[in-house]
Measured scan of single mutants.
Amino acid sequence: HRQALGERLYPRVQAMQPAFASKITGMLLELSPAQLLLLLASEDSLRARVDEAMELII
C-alpha cells in the first residue's frame, strides 16, 4: 500500500524538487496513509510538506 502511494507521490514531488525527489518522497512516506492520501488530493498541502522537507534537508 505504501509502495503504491510512493509511486503516485514521487512524480509530483519530482516536479517540485527534482534533485531531492527520492529523499523527500521517502520522508513523506513516514506519514500515515491517511495523511498521504490528503497530500495526493491537495497540491497545496503537498507543496507545503515538500517545502518543510527541503528546510530539513538544507
Rank of each mutant, 00 (worst) to 15 (best):
E30R: 07
L38E: 15
L39T: 05
L28A: 00
L5T: 05
R12Q: 12
G26P: 07
A53V: 11
F20P: 03
E30I: 05
L9E: 01
I57P: 01
H1M: 09
E7D: 11
Q35K: 09
R2N: 15
A41E: 12
G6I: 15
M27L: 09
A41G: 07
I58A: 12
R49I: 10
Q3G: 09
L37F: 07
L46A: 00
R12V: 14
E52V: 07
E7G: 05
Q3W: 03
S45E: 12
A41T: 11
S42D: 13
Q14H: 12
P11H: 14
R12P: 04
E55L: 12
A41R: 07
L37I: 13
M16L: 14
A15K: 07
A53Y: 14
Y10S: 04
E7F: 02
R12D: 03
K23Y: 08
H1F: 03
G6P: 05
K23M: 11
A48R: 14
G6N: 09
L36P: 00
A21W: 02
V50L: 03
V50H: 00
D44I: 09
H1L: 10
S42G: 05
A53G: 02
G26L: 14
A4W: 06
D51F: 09
R8L: 15
A19T: 11
A48V: 11
P33L: 13
L39V: 11
L46R: 00
M54I: 07
L36V: 13
I58Q: 12
R47P: 01
K23N: 05
R2T: 10
S42C: 06
R8P: 03
R2P: 13
A48G: 06
L5Y: 06
M54C: 04
S42R: 05
T25H: 05
L40K: 00
P11C: 12
P18M: 03
F20L: 11
L29A: 04
D51W: 08
R8Q: 15
A21F: 01
I57R: 02
Q14P: 01
L31Q: 04
R47W: 03
A4K: 11
L40Q: 02
I57N: 01
S32F: 05
A19N: 14
L5F: 12
M54F: 10
L38G: 12
A15V: 10
E52L: 09
R49E: 06
Q17Y: 15
A4N: 08
R8W: 13
R8G: 06
I24L: 05
E43M: 07
D51R: 12
L28G: 00
H1S: 13
A4S: 12
E52N: 07
I58L: 15
G26D: 15
A34D: 15
H1C: 09
R49K: 12
E55A: 13
V13D: 01
A48P: 03
P18R: 02
I58Y: 08
L31G: 04
P11I: 13
G26V: 11
E30H: 08
L37A: 09
S42P: 01
R2M: 15
M16A: 04
A21D: 01
I24C: 02
G6L: 15
F20T: 02
A19H: 14
E43F: 05
A48H: 08
S32N: 09
V50A: 02
E43Y: 07
M27E: 02
E43Q: 09
A34R: 06
S42M: 05
A41N: 12
A19F: 08
A4I: 14
L38T: 10
L9T: 02
V50W: 01
L46K: 00
S32A: 12
Q17A: 13
A15C: 06
S22M: 14
A19Y: 07
E7T: 08
E52R: 09
D44T: 09
I57W: 04
L37P: 03
Y10G: 05
L28Y: 01
Q3L: 05
M16T: 04
Y10H: 07
E43H: 07
A34P: 09
R47D: 01
S22N: 13
Q35F: 09
L28T: 00
D51I: 09
E52M: 12
L56W: 09
L56M: 11
L29F: 03
V13K: 02
L5V: 09
D44M: 06
L29I: 06
L56A: 10
A19W: 05
M54G: 01
A4D: 12
L46W: 01
L31M: 10
Q17D: 03
P33Y: 15
L36N: 01
I24W: 01
K23I: 15
E52T: 08
A34W: 07
P33I: 15
Q17P: 01
S32P: 13
A19R: 10
E7H: 06
V50N: 00
I24Y: 00
P33S: 14
L39C: 06
L36D: 01
P18V: 03
E43L: 05
R47Q: 10
D44Q: 11
A41W: 09
Y10N: 03
L46F: 07
L38I: 14
A53T: 09
S45Y: 14
L5N: 04
F20E: 06
